[in-house]
């Protein structure tokens, strides 16, 4: 892949400025931005039946860093989280914009921003950074995950409830909302996902995600707690390629309003995370043993 890019981009002059097409219709600066993502720690998101898990392989670059401090999965609105891989300051810019979008949506509509709208707006924002030679594209791929509330939201707090039924009343028993997961690339392109992965170990992670039962249309879909354990296992597995480096596992989750996080985006509780890590390590050992057996 790299040699391919070398042959067609370097030295042509078409890769020196953002917003410029090469004769074969490519924007090389965007492709180079993708390179910045590909070296970052693996980040994944899993959309489960009753919530979403975000997980991150946080490579420890120095012994002097404070343990479990430098948190990188950010809360955007109460019910939305963002994890990213690539240039960390660009990721923070992305998060800051997402927060502004969520907050301005609230001030316009008195309601939290739906996941699809947030992804759409962030896609448009990131895309705008591929349009002008006065800026550079984002050097990150961002994963947005959250839960659109399935319950009715109070307008202006709890001031008056309005008619319960009838004209101006509510349709009873109607439920909307649910888990959402989107991944936005440096080009501004985004898709909705059942399982998303980016960063260095994305190939391994994607292969693992594809094995999970995540499509609700196929009948069964894993639960949030299973999702947490799978996420930990996948991050540990994806780390195998850069085994010489230490890392910390950072995980957050969002459940339904009736679930463990009450519809909020929160850090996975320490006890649950450690249990997931224990299982992940065990699963890895099991795999090693199998490999050894095969070799024998």
């Amino acid at each position: 892949m790299l040699t391919h890019i070398r042959q067609t981009s370097i030295g042509t002059g078409y890769d020196l400025s953002n917003s410029v097409f090469s004769p074969d219709g490519r924007n090389f600066q965007v492709e180079y931005a993708v390179k910045a993502v590909e070296n970052g720690g693996t980040a994944i998101g899993i959309r489960c039946k009753d919530g979403v898990v975000l997980a991150l392989e946080k490579l420890v670059t120095s012994k002097l860093l404070k343990k479990d401090a430098n948190k990188r999965i950010a809360t955007v609105d109460r019910n939305v989280g963002v994890v990213y891989s690539g240039l960390l300051p660009d990721g923070r810019h992305f998060v800051s914009r997402a927060r502004d979008e969520a907050s301005s949506w609230r001030s316009s509509y008195k309601a939290p921003i739906p996941g699809s709208s947030l992804a759409n707006r962030m896609g448009a924002y990131v895309q705008a950074y591929t349009l002008y030679n006065s800026v550079r594209p984002f050097g990150i791929t961002g994963i947005i995950g959250g839960w659109d509330a399935e319950t009715e939201l109070a307008v202006d707090g709890s001031v008056g409830s309005g008619p319960k039924v009838g004209a101006g009343g509510k349709k009873q028993g109607v439920k909307e909302g649910g888990p959402f997961l989107y991944m936005i690339e440096p080009s501004g392109l985004y898709w909705g996902y059942y399982g998303a992965a980016t960063g260095k170990g994305r190939q391994t992670a994607k292969a693992e995600l594809e094995k999970l039962k995540l499509d609700p249309k196929n009948g069964e879909c894993i639960s949030l707690e299973e999702g947490v354990k799978e996420a930990a296992r996948i991050i540990y597995l994806a780390h195998e390629d850069s085994k010489d480096k230490e890392f910390e596992l950072e995980m957050t989750w969002v459940s339904a309003v009736g679930g463990p996080t009450k519809g909020r985006h929160e850090e996975v509780p320490k006890a649950l995370r450690e249990e997931a890590e224990r299982l992940a390590k065990k699963a890895l050992e099991g795999e090693d043993e199998e490999e050894e057996k095969m070799e024998e």
């Binding site: 948190k71 809360t75 609105d77 927060r99 202006d156 850090e267």
Partner: peptide
């Protein structure tokens, strides 16, 4: 009051951004 309530809500959302350190 409703205006102030929305102001407080957005303040609460902002307060929630910052990680809470080691606290779950």
């Amino acid at each position: 009051m409703q205006y102030l309530d929305r102001l407080l809500l957005s303040l609460h959302v902002e307060e929630n951004y910052a990680g809470s350190g080691d606290v779950d």
